[in-house]
């Protein structure tokens, strides 16, 4: 498993890390160019161009992340490379998890790099002092009410779970598309839209159901239960409830993908 993670990381890092480096460098240059003197230079045209380039770069980071995420799964497991990967002495579960973990890591890194680059861009405008104040304030609140730290950790967990679920969803679409005899890429896209629509239907069904019918009683019951419960506990409950709600579709996607790769695999 560690070895799979190692090679997965190598394969992703070779594209991602230079891109992150370029992104951060770009934001530093842009930050320098937003000073007043630079803006006066050639009526601010270089600054404007750089600004556009910066924005394009930011978009590129996210697009590349998504492409890598898809390509690593599709090419490495469902393409010709699958002949090598699926005859390694490792289980299908290990394959999927190694991909998911590294995918989640590069998603997080991309997010961090994006935030960091914006922070660098704004460093001239006293953003850092503001940020420091914010963090200081935060520290004070945590001391006053330790629950806040809990909310934050739950929030991070929720973010992480939704990333993993999202990645697994893409994997499931590709695995389903792979079941087709031809036009497998096209079928993956079709599955993506079909499943998204179905999920939306289910979701709105549940929402409607909450207003009336049997679901109403459940909601009522929950409502009765939470009366008198302190709001802090309630917020924890809601956040953790969201976590579970995100993890469930993720788990469904995982088991679907696992089943297909194990039993229905048919490399071209």
């Amino acid at each position: 498993m560690l070895k799979l993670l190692k090679y997965e990381w190598k394969a992703c890092a070779r594209i991602c890390l230079p891109l992150y480096g370029a992104m951060l460098l770009m934001s530093m240059v842009s930050a320098l160019m937003t000073t007043e003197r630079a803006q006066d230079f050639m009526s601010g045209i270089p600054t404007a161009i750089l600004g556009m380039l910066y924005f394009a770069m930011l978009v590129a980071v996210f697009v590349v992340t998504l492409v890598i995420l898809i390509q690593r799964f599709y090419k490495n497991l469902l393409g010709d490379e699958g002949y090598l990967m699926f005859t390694l002495p490792v289980t299908v579960a290990q394959h999927i998890w190694s991909k998911v973990i590294i995918a989640a890591v590069i998603c997080c890194l991309s997010g961090i790099v994006a935030v960091l680059s914006i922070a660098i861009l704004g460093s001239g405008t006293g953003l850092f002092t503001g940020l420091a104040m914010l963090i200081g304030e935060f520290g004070r609140i945590i001391v006053v009410d330790p629950n806040v730290l809990g909310y934050m950790l739950e929030g991070i967990l929720l973010l992480l779970l939704s990333t993993i679920s999202g990645v697994l969803y893409l994997y499931l679409c590709m695995a389903l598309g792979h079941l087709a005899k031809k036009h497998r890429v096209l079928m993956s896209v079709v599955w993506y839209f079909v499943l998204s629509t179905v999920a939306q239907f289910v979701f709105s069904f549940v929402l409607i159901g909450m207003g009336n019918g049997p679901m109403e009683m459940v909601v009522q019951a929950i409502g009765d239960m939470v009366v008198g419960v302190p709001p802090q506990v309630l917020l924890h409950g809601v956040l953790l409830g969201f976590c579970v709600a995100t993890a469930i579709p993720g788990a469904i996607c995982y088991f679907g993908t696992h089943y297909i790769l194990k039993n229905r695999l048919n490399l071209e």
Binding site: D80, Y83, L84, T87, P89, V90
Partner: peptide, 21 residues
């Protein structure tokens, strides 16, 4: 066929499985 058999079988497919990096 599974983890154990993969560890004792050396397989050469009829196509290239080499990645490009």
């Amino acid at each position: 066929p599974g983890v154990h058999t993969h560890s004792v079988v050396s397989y050469l497919p009829d196509r290239g499985y080499l990645n490009d990096w």
